[in-house]
Design a protein around this nucleic acid. Structure first.
Length: 269
DNA sequence: ATGCAGGGTTCGC
DNA sequence: GCGAACCCTGCA
């Protein structure tokens, strides 16, 4: 499969904080060291070539036509979106494996991107199986994580989240089926039974696995941007979800990614 | 050098 | 509902 660089910004989408399961190899390719969905991307000037993905590649990266019609709708919402959408290209929302997003984003709470990435990579390298072709270690599944010790995980730099990961893995394995038919708010509420998963991480899981699109995760940056750009601020997290849905409907998840990319880089907020 | 924030959540009151 | 603690690193 081939993606156009213009309609898919690999650097932003894969390394901007939606996923922690990508890394550059020494020959410059991008490796998805996911245990569920491994594969390799080669970046050319104007296209991205996907190799050896075991699953449905198209589903993971999102459909180009859906993306373009979302952009058309977002452009018409207000002047801010009109400007932002025309300035930013190729920012999308990934549809990652549900289980893997859970067990990488638990590590993200009160943490920073380089450290999260480092922890995720260490967990893969120590406890993941090797990819048959590339020899890289792939991120372990919930089954494996549930069997690790706190010390083994702490050695990967996750700190107090080690306990969250192990306990959540056990609870997830027992309740796997209960998540299957849930989406949007119902899904984020259900996800909060997992220790280490609060409002924000639940939103990340739902949105970055493609199972919610009517809101976008609210972190410190998002709060800052929404306050300064749209002049909105709430004390209850769920009020942000309502605001997103009211403003952007089913394009809210994409709107969030595009807005944050724009205002974080250009610091025009 | 000390303090604080970093893509928050849990626990205790 | 509210504040504090949490593991650890980088940066002011």
């Amino acid at each position: 499969m081939i993606l156009s660089s213009k309609s898919f910004n690999a650097w932003v989408n894969l390394f901007g904080g939606q996923s922690f399961l990508w890394r550059q190899t020494n020959n410059g390719e991008l490796l998805h060291f996911s245990g569920k969905f491994p594969g390799v991307l080669k970046l050319r000037e104007d296209e991205i070539i996907c190799y050896d993905f075991s699953g449905n590649v198209k589903d993971y990266f999102g459909d180009e036509d859906d993306y373009l019609s979302s952009l058309r709708r977002l452009r018409m919402i207000d002047d801010i979106m009109a400007r932002v959408v025309s300035d930013i290209q190729g920012v999308r929302v990934l549809k990652q494996d549900f289980e893997e997003v859970i067990f990488t984003f638990i590590i993200s709470s009160n943490n920073n991107l380089p450290r999260i990435r480092n922890s995720v990579l260490q967990i893969a390298n120590r406890f993941g199986r090797k990819h048959t072709k590339y020899g890289a270690c792939l991120y372990p599944d919930a089954e494996v994580i549930s069997g690790l010790s706190i010390d083994e995980l702490r050695a990967c730099g996750v700190g107090y989240r080690a306990d969250f990961l192990i306990e959540s893995a056990k609870i997830y394995l027992r309740n796997k089926n209960s998540f299957e038919n849930l989406q949007e708010e119902a899904l984020v509420e259900a996800l909060k039974i997992l220790p280490g998963v609060g409002d924000k991480v639940a939103d990340c899981i739902a949105v970055f696995s493609g199972r919610a699109n009517s809101f976008s995760p609210i972190d410190v940056w998002a709060k800052r941007i929404l306050r300064e750009v749209y002049n909105v601020e709430f004390s209850h997290y769920s009020d942000y979800r309502k605001w997103w849905r009211g403003k952007f409907g089913n394009d809210a998840a994409l709107a969030g990614q595009i807005l944050f990319e724009y205002f974080r880089n250009t610091s025009k907020a």
